[in-house]
């Protein structure tokens, strides 16, 4: 648009005096101004829209609670027979401008492994298996079925064995349940490094 103005003015320049020159400057100024304002406005909009792509969120990664070790429950609360139990993961997460007090940011399944072995070493992290309760297929919440001793997802009927793995038959889920890191602190406190993972992919990709 600007350039057209220029050529138009250029043509009449021969016959023109100071009036045409003023017109030329005016047009250029206005054109640049309009373009600049439009660029700034759209730039602002686009930056705003793309803001979630930025690595650094206004609330740092710690504030969402994911990726850090969090206390979940005590060892004694896990059934001795190896039944998996669902526990909420509680922390003080920040959502944009709100800091919540003790709010659940997801669910985990915990299960005593080597059930029935004696003596029970409640300080040994390998005694406890932990999984994110979200189905790796499309993200529904999985249930533990006591009778079958397996995990079952109602959404598309995915099944996982008690150790979180896929059963022999073909499963809907592209990968086993997402296991989580376990630490045992103090006198049998179970701490979990809570993470969410990309669903629907064969590889287990943590979401940051």
């Amino acid at each position: 648009m600007e350039s057209r103005e220029k050529t138009d003015i250029g043509k009449s320049n021969g016959a023109g005096g100071p009036a045409t020159r003023r017109k030329f400057f005016g047009a250029t100024l206005l054109g640049t101004g309009v373009l600049g304002a439009a660029a700034a406005a759209f730039g602002g909009l686009i930056t705003g829209l793309l803001q979630p792509l930025h690595r650094r969120q206004p609330a740092g990664a710690d504030d969402t609670g994911t990726g850090a070790f969090l206390f979940v429950t005590r060892f004694e609360n896990l059934p001795e027979d190896g039944t998996a139990m669902r526990f909420p993961v509680i922390t003080d997460p920040v959502d944009a401008w709100t800091r919540y007090q003790s709010r659940s940011i997801g669910n985990v399944f915990l299960r005593r492994v080597k059930a029935g072995t004696e003596p029970v070493d409640r300080m040994d992290p390998s005694m406890v298996a932990a999984w994110n309760a979200r189905c790796p297929h499309a993200g529904c919440t999985v249930n533990f079925r006591r009778q079958e001793m397996d995990f079952f997802c109602h959404c598309h009927e995915s099944r996982f064995l008690a150790d979180g793995s896929l059963p022999g038959e073909r499963s809907h889920s592209p990968r086993p349940l997402d296991s989580l890191e376990v630490q045992i602190r103090g006198d049998g406190e179970i701490w979990i490094r809570f993470q969410q993972f990309q669903v629907g992919t064969p590889e287990k990709k943590p979401l940051t």
Binding site: P52, Q57, D95, A96, W97, I105
Partner: peptide, 15 residues
């Protein structure tokens, strides 16, 4: 990328 732009924040919240 699309999911991030659509969701606004992860986990879903105010934004």
């Amino acid at each position: 990328v699309m999911a991030k732009i659509l969701s606004g924040s992860e986990p879903l919240g105010h934004l």
